[in-house]
Design a protein around this nucleic acid. Sequence first.
DNA 1: CTGAAAGCGCTTACAG
DNA 2: CTGAAAGCGCTTACAG
Lengths: 342, 342
Amino acid sequence: MDRITIKDIASRAGVSVTTVSLVLNGKEHRIAQETKKKIIHIANELDYRPNQLAIGLITKRTNTIGLILPDISNSFFGELAKGAERKAAENNFNIILCNTNDTPVKDYEYLNVLLDRGVDGIILVPSGRGRDDTIPKCFTLLEQCQKPFVLADRIKVGDKYSGVTLDQEEGGYIATDYLINNGHRKIGCVTGPLGMLNAYLRYQGYRKAIETAGIVHRPKWVREGSYHIEDGVELSKELFQEGVSAIFACNDMMAYGVYQSAVRSGIKVPDQLSIVGFDDIIFSQFSEVPLTTIHQPAYQMGETAVEKLLALIMNKEEKNEKIIFKPELIIRSSVKDVTSER
Amino acid sequence: MDRITIKDIASRAGVSVTTVSLVLNGKEHRIAQETKKKIIHIANELDYRPNQLAIGLITKRTNTIGLILPDISNSFFGELAKGAERKAAENNFNIILCNTNDTPVKDYEYLNVLLDRGVDGIILVPSGRGRDDTIPKCFTLLEQCQKPFVLADRIKVGDKYSGVTLDQEEGGYIATDYLINNGHRKIGCVTGPLGMLNAYLRYQGYRKAIETAGIVHRPKWVREGSYHIEDGVELSKELFQEGVSAIFACNDMMAYGVYQSAVRSGIKVPDQLSIVGFDDIIFSQFSEVPLTTIHQPAYQMGETAVEKLLALIMNKEEKNEKIIFKPELIIRSSVKDVTSER
DNA sequence: CTGAAAGCGCTTACAG
DNA sequence: CTGAAAGCGCTTACAG
């Protein structure tokens, strides 16, 4: 089935394609009402829908956004993508999904492919693996081609790019501060891989809260994990040895590992051990002992990233800026107030 | 920054655009080695990358696939999308992501938009809400435009379309059969919304297993939920009253609700109550009592859907067929063998 | 061995 | 008020 083109309409209406294009785009007010009506009527009748490739080729606008992220099956990025897609659709934009598996070379390849496809802008969650210069190369490319882009989630606050993220350090801070306010002094921390910026910042927040409270920061209370549940299980054992009364786990999966480890060691949560997590994954509210944790507004971050990107696309003078979401402490049942016990 | 075009290369090489196009696409073997080399050299030097819109316009091939699904933040669809994206990327295809929120009119709108963008094919997980004729309209449109498409997950086995799904009924069957083989006779079932095909089929599988074992199917042992954890909590209470020794919950969230309800009622799992779920969400392996459940290979289903779609795109004679994955029973710790107790 | 020309489906000065 | 023409960046008969 060949699609209806502007030419078909023109010949049926006995006018030129110019005229058809003009009225269908509402561009010329000087066109005779009769001609207008006739064209519009025919277009409706034939169910005409313009070929977006042709329009894109000529207008240099495709109403298309590239979304590059590490793992769409991760619920955080899933939510983010959902928010981004919704906001894009609302504005008649489509999303091209690019999943990198945290492989920097893929970031670069996808960037090129998106450019080849004439996307109007790009949302990028840079890959976190690999220590080479691939990601910097991505930024160079992005600057060279002048294509608007917005970074998401993994952002260096110091750089000059537009971005949307959560204040990770603040998250680590309020999580830890909450434990301190509940009377805890010996607070362990199971971090994410410290080579990754966000993991590092969460840990920095922990440290800041500890030191602000006048507690000595003890390296032996801090263990580096890699965000997996097993890290929570294993590393918490060492922390139990140190006699901590509370643990801040830098993501919910590890928090859950800590919890399991405690249960197996006969340590009651929260009576003998308090736990705070980070992420607020769906399960945290339903777990045996509902987890007190830091909530990340992933959906809104996705929406906001697209909003910002659209602003950059529509109005190139829009200044580059960072939009930093505030983390929210979700208080559930995994922390005990021990102030009276001291 | 204007992009390099074939024209730029032609003028630098002192040849026509025809020649450039020919050598860059490896189409003409009769072209002088020298000319070839020169053109390729210049193209590399200038980092030439062809404009895909132009190519798409002329070749009627965009190397683009539309993926329409209800909710990308749902981990099942997230996995499916990941598999689809990977297989697509492997074959130099990109994915346009369309999230419908289970709203049929969006299926239809997105379908049109994808067609406007000249996608080469579409993967569709039809929306399950709404009882109007919007989804049938989608199929009509799809047939009219002759665009290859593959349905995923939500499929009527009887129709003539290509599709990838899991054998839902078989899943319900083996889940229930496992309980029966472990000596259970009074087996409750908390179903999903029975208006949805897959929920209905899972329940049918339960029923079939029950009846095959010569157990009378009792409607009062069956309760209809809507896949939410609360349904598991509430509906299981009624089943406890009926004195069931086991419950098949038609998804893991409800299975978890059943578990929580049991714990609160002082019923031990699996000692006093056995539970089997469906989905194998990430959490099921980590929960207090690791859940025995039915695994759905979502990632592979996504991959397979794209494979099948690509086959349809490359070779239109490819026949329409259904690819039905077998469910896998993942045995963990939520079922007790009570054969000896009877 | 190579190029002029037509064309994909549109938009947009420009002319009348 | 309307149309012929050029052009977006390519590909592909066709001609020589």
